[in-house]
Amino acid sequence: MNLSCIIIDDEPNAVNLLEILVNQNTKWELLAKCYDALEAMVFLKDHKPDFIFLDINMPQLTGMELAGLLSKETKIVFTTAYSEYAAESYSFQTIDYLLKPITLKRFLAAMQKIEAYFCSRADNEKLLIPTGSEYFFVKSGKELRRILLEDIQYFEGEKEYVRVVTAASQILIYRRLKDIDEQLAPPFVRVHNSYIVNTKQLNKIQDNHIYIANKQIPVSEKFKDRFMAVIQQRIF
């Protein structure tokens, strides 16, 4: 995925390592390397990278202080040797929180999370099936049943069939879940090989499970990052 970023860190070795990880493992464009917050502020006046790698402990102005001065449109991946700032970091537009020293394994996990975040935003801007008060018809026996998209709680795959579940009904249709997934975008998100959920219908998320009405739905590791990228945009 083609994204642009900058690195803001006062430690040259940390900057060099992150630059190598970015160049060797992604298609991202590294626009700049800034060695203090003031240098970064000057750069960001005229440039708008998709996101920034931001160290926390820096002289003059810390990463947290800089984050508070930035536009809410600026997405952040914090990089630090200290875990105690993790909770506070998510009061900003934070995508991820990387602890130093950054390993290749952890960087690759962050890369997937970052790309899933921007992929979900792109999906949200370009819906293939409109949401809200839009509707579609599904064939049930000899009938064509009209269903509002906003009423759907989730889709459940059952081999070559899909169960469309609303509060009032459950309809089994002859379609593959994969085909439906390709036509939908947020608030509909694939969370499991067998489930697509309407995030507007969620009651809570707990222990890698989603709760919609009385239904408990698992969130698999395969789809977790993309799902959380959508949810992250709604966390206060």
Rank of each mutant, 00 (worst) to 15 (best):
residue 101 P to F: 10
residue 117 Y to W: 02
residue 102 I to S: 11
residue 99 L to I: 15
residue 106 R to V: 10
residue 85 Y to S: 12
residue 72 K to V: 12
residue 73 E to H: 10
residue 71 S to W: 10
residue 100 K to V: 04
residue 72 K to G: 07
residue 120 S to T: 03
residue 118 F to T: 00
residue 99 L to M: 06
residue 124 N to C: 02
residue 100 K to A: 13
residue 92 F to K: 08
residue 94 T to C: 09
residue 119 C to N: 14
residue 92 F to A: 06
residue 100 K to I: 12
residue 85 Y to G: 03
residue 117 Y to E: 00
residue 77 V to P: 01
residue 78 F to M: 04
residue 101 P to L: 13
residue 89 S to D: 02
residue 101 P to S: 14
residue 88 E to L: 03
residue 101 P to R: 07
residue 121 R to F: 03
residue 110 A to G: 04
residue 105 K to T: 15
residue 79 T to A: 04
residue 80 T to I: 10
residue 86 A to T: 12
residue 84 E to H: 15
residue 79 T to V: 15
residue 104 L to T: 09
residue 123 D to L: 07
residue 81 A to Q: 11
residue 106 R to L: 08
residue 81 A to G: 15
residue 74 T to V: 14
residue 85 Y to F: 14
residue 82 Y to K: 05
residue 107 F to P: 00
residue 120 S to H: 03
residue 112 Q to Y: 08
residue 114 I to C: 14
residue 87 A to G: 06
residue 122 A to V: 07
residue 80 T to Q: 11
residue 86 A to S: 06
residue 112 Q to D: 15
residue 85 Y to D: 03
residue 92 F to T: 06
residue 72 K to R: 11
residue 78 F to K: 12
residue 108 L to P: 13
residue 94 T to K: 10
residue 78 F to E: 09
residue 113 K to C: 02
residue 70 L to D: 00
residue 122 A to Y: 09
residue 101 P to M: 13
residue 92 F to M: 13
residue 78 F to L: 12
residue 85 Y to Q: 06
residue 91 S to P: 02
residue 102 I to E: 07
residue 75 K to P: 10
residue 75 K to D: 02
residue 108 L to W: 07
residue 79 T to N: 01
residue 86 A to R: 11
residue 123 D to F: 06
residue 120 S to L: 08
residue 74 T to N: 06
residue 117 Y to K: 02
residue 100 K to R: 13
residue 104 L to Y: 10
residue 86 A to C: 15
residue 126 K to H: 10
residue 71 S to L: 05
residue 120 S to Y: 01
residue 79 T to W: 02
residue 113 K to A: 10
residue 110 A to K: 00
residue 104 L to S: 03
residue 75 K to H: 14
residue 69 L to E: 14
residue 119 C to P: 00
residue 122 A to P: 00
residue 115 E to H: 06
residue 79 T to M: 04
residue 86 A to E: 12
residue 107 F to Y: 03
residue 97 Y to N: 03
residue 126 K to M: 09
